[in-house]
Structures are given as C-alpha cells and as structure tokens.
C-alpha cells in the first residue's frame, strides 16, 4: 500500500530538489527569520506599534507643542528670570485637540512595514530563487531592526533600555546572514564560465571571505546578545524574575525570591561565559547548548504568560536559532573542508 500523502508526488525527489536549492543551514536560517519576521510584524499590525512609531509620534507631539522652546521659557519663569508673558507664544493650539491624522500617518507606515515583514517571511521560505528582491528586503529589515532598537533606547522608560541594540544583535544578524547566504549562493549558481545558467547547487564550496564573514557575524551576534541578556540577569532584571517564577509554577514549583535571585545570577554568568566562549572557541557542544538555551528562554515567554504572547517567542527565534544555524553552517563547511574538523577537535577557533 502506498502510504504517501500525495501518491502522485515523489516525496524524496521533491525534498531533494528543495534541499538542493540551498544548503540546510540556509533553510534553517530562513525558518528562523520567517518566525522572527512574523513575531515582529504582529505588534506593527496592531495599535501597539514599533518603537520607531512610538518615537516618531512622540517627536511629532513635541514638534506640535513647541515643547523644547516652551520648556526653556518655563524654566526661565521658574527661575524668576522672566515673567509669564514669555510663555504666551508657545500655546498656539488647543492641546486637547489631538491631531489623530498625523498619528494615523505614522501608524500606516508602521503597518506597511508589518505587511512587508510578513511578505519577507513568505519570500525567504517560498521563493528561494528571487534573490535580488529578497536581499534588498533583508537588508531593509536589518536596518529597521537597528532603528527600532535605537528608538527603544531613546524612548527609554524601561530598565536597561540602553541595552536594546545589543540585546537585539541576533535579530539584526538573522536577515543580514540570510542576505549574505542568498547572495553568495546566487553568485555561485550564476557564475558559470560560458554564461550559461547552471542548475543551482547548494553544495558548492564558498570562497573563504564570505564564509568567514558569515561565521563572524553569527558568532559575534550570539555573543553580544547573550552578553547583554547575561548582564541583565546578573542585575536581577525584574521581567526575568517573573519569567522564572511563572514558568516554574507550570511544573508545580514554587520558587522563593532568594532562589530566583540565585538562579538569575547563575544564568547571567552562564550567558556571559557562553558569550565569551563562542567568540574564542569553535566547539559544537557549545552551540547545542546555546541553541537549546536560546529556545528555552524564548519559550519562557509563553510558559510564563500564556500562549497569547506567541509573538514574543517568535520574535526571539534567532536567539537559539542562530546557534543551530551556525552549527549547521560549520557542518556544511566541514563537509567542504575536512581540515576544519581537525581544528575543532583541538578546540581552536578558525
């Protein structure tokens, strides 16, 4: 009896044809990126909005109310160096009239980026061949994440908002890594000597430069992200305390504050140690650990706060995902260059 779901399709052939379009690590990265894009898109498509939106609307708000000049004038009044007339000119509109149209414009931009991220998620999975468009989109996504992190820092209002960008290093690296991966896979597949387009082959070796660039990008982004999270944990970051406490209740554990503080310290130093090690050493067990730990911490949002916050987990797909991508990338490299295996067994970085 034929047990195939679609008897008319040769599953193995289909799988082979898909895998041959890209190396496995690039597929894995595509999945990670897809999850991340969808996670990022959700708040953009709701009224929650990105940090960019919040910062932009705040700036418009300030611009509208001549806030900076009003502040200077009021300061002069408070210091007694001016009389109240100095303030008159700064109230030229009724502040109860909120200009929703301006806010709406910024929200539309935000929603546009949200839709773009959804499309990008589809693009990286479903159209591996549309490389040029995808690369441009990926670079834009990376730039957006950087700007979003900068805005989070500027808005402040949250503990460790200064660490927004380092905390999001893997989120930035995921689209950049994908762009790099697609870019060089594409170049190989189109680079035949006689100008004929050759079938794509994911297993062709890469030149040393891009290989090293991708390796460094993934390793450093993991290191920076884990270091930033480790520092927050060592400092007893309040949301982390809730994540541990609420998640542990799911399995019937009731941890007291002292235990949670101790756990956070251990977790924090572990993260920092892992971050340092990933930069210095090329060891696979470390990546397995990072991958598993990154996935666990991403899922802790859902275990703590319920399935409704799935976007917070998806958003953090790269934290553990990039470690697994790197692991797969090393595997791919070692198949091309068996010498790397020897280096790894000695624990020497490339």
């Amino acid at each position: 009896m034929d047990t195939r779901v679609f008897p008319f399709v040769d599953h193995m052939k289909l799988l082979r044809s898909i895998l041959e379009q890209r190396p496995f690590w690039l597929w894995l990265l595509a999945v990670v990126l897809c999850l991340q894009c969808l996670g990022m898109a959700r708040p953009l498509l709701s009224k929650d909005g990105s940090h960019v939106y919040r910062y932009a609307t705040k700036q418009v708000d300030l611009e509208q109310s001549h806030e900076a000049d009003a502040a200077n004038a009021l300061n002069a009044l408070i210091s007694g160096t001016a009389d109240a007339s100095i303030m008159t000119g700064f109230v030229d509109k009724d502040p109860s009239q909120v200009d929703q149209r301006r806010q709406e414009r910024f929200w539309k931009i935000d929603r546009g980026i949200g839709i773009f991220l959804c499309l990008l998620a589809c693009l990286v999975i479903a159209w591996p061949g549309r490389s040029r468009v995808t690369i441009v989109g990926l670079v834009f996504a990376a730039v957006f994440i950087v700007v979003d992190a900068c805005c989070a820092t500027l808005i402040a209002g949250k503990a460790f908002s200064d660490l927004s960008l380092p905390s999001m290093a893997t989120r930035v690296a995921a689209p950049l890594g994908m762009a790099l991966g697609i870019g060089f896979t594409r170049r190989q597949s189109q680079g035949s000597a006689d100008g004929q387009r050759e079938p794509r082959n994911a297993w062709q070796p890469w030149p040393k430069g891009p290989t090293r660039s991708l390796d460094l990008l993934l390793r450093w982004s993991l290191a920076i992200t884990f270091c930033a999270h480790g520092y927050k944990a060592v400092q007893g970051h309040a949301p982390f305390r809730d994540l541990i406490s609420l998640s542990s209740r799911r399995i019937g554990l009731s941890l007291d504050e002292t235990t949670i503080s101790g756990l956070l310290t251990v977790i924090g130093w572990q993260d920092i140690l892992l971050a340092i090690t990933i930069v210095l050493l090329r060891t696979r067990w470390l990546l397995w650990w990072l991958g598993a730990w990154g996935i666990i911490t991403a899922f802790s949002r859902m275990t703590a706060m319920g399935l409704g916050v799935y976007d917070l987990t998806m958003l953090r797909a790269a934290n553990g995902g990039l470690a697994l991508v790197l692991l797969s990338f090393w595997q791919w490299q070692s198949l091309q260059n068996p010498e790397l295996n020897k280096l790894e067994t000695k624990g020497i970085t490339q």
Binding site: D61, S65, E67, L74, F90, V91, S96
Partner: peptide, 8 residues
Amino acid sequence: SGITARTL
C-alpha cells in the same frame, strides 16, 4: 510631556 497641556 506636553508642557502646555500639563498646565491646563
């Protein structure tokens, strides 16, 4: 924020 609105 909203210095003038705050006054009102």
